[in-house]
Design a protein around this nucleic acid. Structure first.
Length: 129
DNA sequence: CTTCTTACA
DNA sequence: TGTAAGGA
C-alpha cells in the first residue's frame, strides 16, 4: 500500500504532462474542471500532477477519442475506482475493454429517457444503435 | 520562460 | 476547443 503514496505524489507541472499525454493545457484544465482529475497545487497556484493523474489523463484521452463524453468517462473512472478498492484482493487497475465499454454505452443509450443526455458525443451515438 | 484565470471579433 | 489578455 506504499506504492499509492508514490503514485499520488505531486511531481510534474503542466508542461511535462502535456508532452506525456499529447493533450493541450486547455484540455487538461477542462478535465480538471469536470472533476475527472484533481492535481495538487504549489504555493504559487501551479498545478502539480501525480503519476496517477497522468495515468488517468491517458485513459480519459483514450475514451474521448472513442467518442465518450465527460459523463461517460466519469462512469468508467467510477467503475474502475470501485473495482480497485472493493475487491479485497490485490486487483490491478484494469483498463476497460471495448466490450465493457460498448456494454456501458449501450445500457445507457437504452435507458435513455426523453431529454436525457447520452455518454456519446453527438454523431457518434449512431454507431451504437 | 512557463503557467494561471477569465472571456469571446 | 482555440486563443488573447493580464498577472504571477
Amino acid at each position: 500500500m506504499r506504492d499509492e503514496i508514490r503514485r499520488n505524489m505531486p511531481l510534474f507541472p503542466m508542461g511535462i504532462v502535456t508532452k506525456l499525454t499529447e493533450l493541450t493545457p486547455r484540455q487538461v484544465r477542462y478535465y480538471e474542471q469536470q472533476g475527472l482529475i484533481r492535481p495538487a497545487r504549489t504555493k504559487g497556484n501551479q498545478r502539480l500532477f501525480s503519476f496517477n493523474d497522468v495515468d488517468r489523463l491517458l485513459q480519459i484521452k483514450s475514451l474521448m477519442e472513442k467518442g465518450v463524453n465527460v459523463a461517460g468517462v466519469k462512469e468508467v473512472l467510477l467503475k474502475q475506482t470501485a473495482e480497485s478498492t472493493q475487491p479485497s484482493k490485490e486487483k490491478r487497475r484494469h483498463d476497460i475493454t471495448d466490450a465493457e465499454l460498448r456494454k456501458l454505452l449501450k445500457r445507457q443509450l437504452t435507458e435513455l429517457r426523453p431529454g436525457q443526455a447520452h455518454l456519446i458525443q453527438g454523431e457518434l451515438s449512431r454507431f451504437f444503435h
